[in-house]
Design a protein around this nucleic acid. Sequence first.
DNA 1: TAGATTGTTAATCGATTAACAATC
DNA 2: TAGATTGTTAATCGATTAACAATC
Lengths: 212, 212
Amino acid sequence: MKKQAISMNVVRRLPKYLRCISELLEEKIFRISSKQLGELTGFTSSQIRQDFNHFGGFGKQGYGYDVQALYGEICEILAIKKRRNAIIIGAGNLGQAIANYSGFREYFLDIKAIFDIDENIIGKPCCDLVIKDQQYIDSTIDEENISIAIICTPKEVASEIAQKLMNCPSIHGIWNFAPVDIKGNDKVFVENVSLVDSLYVLSFMMKQKRNK
Amino acid sequence: MKKQAISMNVVRRLPKYLRCISELLEEKIFRISSKQLGELTGFTSSQIRQDFNHFGGFGKQGYGYDVQALYGEICEILAIKKRRNAIIIGAGNLGQAIANYSGFREYFLDIKAIFDIDENIIGKPCCDLVIKDQQYIDSTIDEENISIAIICTPKEVASEIAQKLMNCPSIHGIWNFAPVDIKGNDKVFVENVSLVDSLYVLSFMMKQKRNK
DNA sequence: TAGATTGTTAATCGATTAACAATC
DNA sequence: TAGATTGTTAATCGATTAACAATC
């Protein structure tokens, strides 16, 4: 029997649980029920129990959940304890901002290189890196054991670059910030983050509100 | 009879339709069926027809959809023809990147000011703006008729700032990049974009793939 | 007219919620 | 033991897909 794939709805709730639990830990709260967690996150207690049970129950009947254990379990599920090497393609504003955002380093991401095609910026410093020529992408991926590629190029070239990246053996994830939806394959998962889409949704929802 | 609210699933598909249709226009394709649109977007033709009919049918039986008309309709639905004034709170890397990302200006967003609390950067230039002291947020919102606030602060202060912003009469939307889920109210819609959540999802999904 | 494709209703599927026996 | 809360099954709800009459 093939194990049931976890639905995207469940997957996208996991980081929210993790954030909430991590705040509880900071407040030195070591025990929590699905009901309380529901009040904190806005999900129903039923849904929370269902979600957790996709990964095997880690609560105790009559007691609730041990916050520290839960934290460990969810970190394990999200696989965020293991560090990953990444590169950024496109050293425009967004690419440079991501390179500079040290926050990611605090999580599990080590950004090893940033690339661009524009000769005017190749060689310039960016954070603790130097912007490299795109022709060295493949060799850098091999040498530095890169598993994640972050696409910050204009949309016109994003798909083509993504296809090339997917052929690199060590690449298993693409984080795409260009406003094109790139499809993954058996080997590579693609997380599409379209800020423009998000802005459009904001615009639509604002229209629905009172007075505007 | 109160009209049925549009589900978030539908709303989040609208920008994808718009992007696809806009590419068709660039290619000078002026007629499209739901079936063809389905092949381009990855949605079923049935779903596309259902989605469009939430807003009144804009197709012709036996013909399909007029691409130009469709483009206009979806722009109208998303309310992106009207320009909006925005401010950015937090002039760290992400805040500055958004200020610099001229792409948004090409859409409908005019960024009128960027604020920070750090005296060391207040007064410094950022794009065509100068970083302002956060104490002037309220007065700027009034003077410049700001309807969107973009939060790029650390998570510790994001919720508190959001609450204050929601009390400003002209603010109807908050685009929140801090990793905290902020709840909107009757007047203000909050679009939460947590890049950390997105990164966690990428990590989880990579684990599921072959070889990694 | 005949063919194509919509708009819309009905059927199916999946996700969320409710309920409750198991048990800490 | 009694109370609390889980894990899990069943019921409900909503979203997607299929089907087809309407009609361009």
